[in-house]
């Protein structure tokens, strides 16, 4: 297996093993890395583009042959020109700013709270036994199910939207954090005990670095949940934002606006996920080395 960080540190090889085990995607990625040099380098770019391209062609063919009414599936050209109109008209910028702000705030609030609560659940067995079941029960209720009660408490303003997005982020981060910490192999904990590491050192030198990959998986999941929640709240009670733009497009029976919204959300989500993945890689490179 290729290893990207210097080996030999206290916890690194086995922790990577833990990470690999908990996220099967990593294994696939590593296998792919080994195979990749055999391909012509261009394949690297072609492969991810092939499927979207196939969809685009199918879309064009479908609309060109009128297999679906244009009211249901507008042509790619229509969508492109609507996209351009929305960009030049400034609608997209305004809506994105608002949606971005909501996502960032919700992710920050829900993420920090989730990290803290997840750490408590992961570190303390007593806390987990006391709060775990209630948390898991509440986490099962989808965001939409919270809306009627939250409207009564917080009204329809920005607060409601932030809380729903924060709640959507909170759950996966709590789960990932507590699980990440709990899954640190027993031998390492025992070593830490033998070395009589202080509680603080155990947390910073062992638990956090070991849990980080799982936590990051949780954050990336939280981000996708945040987008879903954003659309839910903006569809419900908003007058602006990308989600509202899509609802409005549907109301006006202009599906091209809806598709533009989908493309924007997909594109931004992809970028944000790639950004997070990059940060994650960076962190995993220096964390074990420092230990």
């Amino acid at each position: 297996m290729t290893v990207s960080s210097p080996p030999g540190s206290f916890a690194s090889p086995d922790l990577r093993h833990v990470a690999t085990r908990s996220r099967p995607g990593v294994l696939a990625a590593l296998t792919w890395k080994r195979v990749r040099p055999r391909f012509w380098p261009v394949a690297q770019f072609l492969l991810p583009a092939a499927f979207p391209l196939a969809i685009l062609i199918a879309w064009q063919v479908t609309t060109a042959n009128n297999w679906l009414p244009v009211q249901i599936l507008p042509t790619p050209a229509t969508v492109l020109s609507t996209f351009w109109d929305l960009v030049t008209g400034g609608d997209i910028v305004v809506n994105l700013q608002i949606s971005f702000w909501r996502i960032s705030l919700g992710l920050a609030v829900g993420g920090l709270a989730g990290l803290a609560f997840g750490t408590v659940l992961g570190v303390s067995r007593a806390a987990d036994e006391m709060l775990g079941p209630l948390f898991k029960a509440l986490a099962q209720v989808p965001s939409l199910g919270w809306v009627p009660i939250l409207i009564l408490i917080f009204g329809l303003d920005e607060m409601l939207k932030i809380i729903i997005i924060a709640k959507a982020c909170f759950v996966p981060i709590v789960l990932a954090t507590s699980e990440g910490i709990r899954n640190v192999p027993r031998p390492y904990r025992e070593v830490a005990q033998v070395l009589r590491l202080r509680r603080r050192s155990v947390l910073t030198k062992l638990l956090i670095p070991a849990a980080l990959p799982t936590v990051f998986g949780g954050i990336r999941l939280a981000l996708s949940h945040a987008w879903i929640a954003l659309i839910v709240v903006e569809m419900l009670a908003a007058a602006e934002g990308v989600g509202y733009m899509m609802v409005w497009g549907r109301t006006l029976f202009q599906i091209d606006i809806v598709i533009v919204g989908m493309l924007i959300i997909g594109g931004i989500g992809l970028l944000m996920d790639a950004g997070l993945a990059r940060i994650e890689r960076g962190m995993r490179r220096w964390e074990p080395a420092r230990a």
Binding site: P148, I151, L152, G155, L156, A237, A239, V247
Partner: peptide
């Protein structure tokens, strides 16, 4: 200030005083 709401949500919003 116009708020775009479905009928069922309007009832909750009126009761909550947010519209």
């Amino acid at each position: 200030t116009i708020v775009d709401l479905k009928t069922a949500d309007q009832l909750a919003a009126l009761a909550a005083g947010s519209i």
